[in-house]
Amino acid sequence: MQSGNPALNKNTFLDAASGAVVTRSDDAMTINGTVNKTGLLLLLVLVGAFVSWSRFSGPDSLPTIMPLVLGGCIGGLVLGLVTVFKKTWAAVAEGLFIGALSAIFEMRYPGIVIQAVGLTFGTMAAMLLAYRSGLIRATEKFKLGVVAATGGILLLYVANFAMGFFGHSMGFINGSSMLGIGFSAVVVVIAALNLILDFDLIETGAQSGAPKYMEWYGAFALVVTLVWLYLELLRLLSKLQSRN
């Protein structure tokens, strides 16, 4: 099993102590349990987003809201790395980050947030339907391709961030040129395909009798992918609207 999502990997669904899967059904991971925990984490993201969104009242409030953007981003990353202990807090931190960032985008492009939210959940529904119907199969080649593409995007973002310290950047990443729009569209597609990997790993974990607590890992992985997809859609929509 492979996933481009750092919250999941091929050993995620092995019992941490014995390296074996759980055989008792009461202690085993289920898809319904993962869905319920995903709903809870999304609710926590929404709570965090509401807190930071409510503190934004226009350009004058930027000095107040920027610490939430940075704190939410860094906090979500740090807590995500120790997700075995702080999954719920990581969800709240992610909410603070996307709520503050969404408020800034909404100020500049009114209506963009509801469009991005609708497209995010619409994409998730479409990917789930494609996965369940067998239209898209998580074969080993498919997984390898998506993981490689995700890693390539991550390296580009890291390189662009590092270049920023020297006053340079890759213009197509944030620019609204046709190349920039095309790049964002490709990233959105890769983020959406990561949902297929998450669905496959969760289903595999449930079928193999993974430990019950692994439902939290599966739920957190889905939330991470959805947040990434939402942010990339927000970026793509902003590029498109900036050309109008």
Rank of each mutant, 00 (worst) to 15 (best):
S3H: 01
S3N: 02
N5L: 00
P6I: 00
P6K: 02
A7S: 12
L8R: 02
N9P: 01
A16Q: 09
A17C: 09
A17G: 14
S18M: 04
V22Y: 12
R24C: 09
D26M: 15
D27S: 15
A28N: 12
T30P: 15
T34N: 12
T38E: 09
T38K: 06
L42Y: 09
V45D: 11
V47W: 07
A49P: 09
V51F: 15
S52V: 02
S57E: 10
D60C: 00
P67Q: 07
V69Q: 11
G71L: 09
G72N: 07
G72L: 05
I74F: 15
G76A: 12
G80Y: 04
L81F: 12
V82I: 14
T83G: 15
K86Q: 15
K87W: 15
A91F: 10
A93D: 11
E94G: 15
G95E: 10
G95Q: 08
A100G: 12
A100L: 06
A100T: 06
A103M: 08
M107N: 13
G111P: 14
G111D: 14
I112H: 06
V113M: 14
Q115H: 13
Q115C: 11
V117P: 14
V117N: 11
T120R: 09
T123Y: 04
T123P: 10
M124F: 12
A125K: 02
A125E: 02
L128C: 10
L129P: 04
R132P: 03
R132T: 07
L135Y: 12
R137H: 03
T139P: 06
E140L: 00
K141A: 04
G145A: 05
A148Q: 01
A149D: 03
T150G: 14
G151Q: 04
G152H: 01
G152Y: 00
I153M: 08
I153S: 06
L156W: 05
Y157H: 13
Y157T: 04
N160P: 08
A162T: 08
G164D: 11
F165I: 03
F166W: 11
F166I: 05
G175N: 07
G175Q: 06
M178H: 01
G180A: 05
I181E: 06
G182L: 01
F183E: 04
S184M: 01
V186Y: 08
V187I: 03
V187A: 14
V188R: 01
V189F: 07
I190D: 03
A192P: 10
L193K: 04
N194I: 00
L195W: 03
I196H: 10
L197F: 01
D198W: 03
D198Y: 02
E203S: 13
E203T: 07
G205P: 05
S208A: 10
A210E: 08
A210R: 07
P211H: 10
M214E: 14
E215V: 02
E215H: 07
G218R: 08
A219N: 06
F220V: 01
F220R: 07
V224C: 10
W228S: 14
Y230E: 03
E232T: 04
L234A: 06
L237Y: 10
L240P: 04
Q241Y: 13
R243F: 01
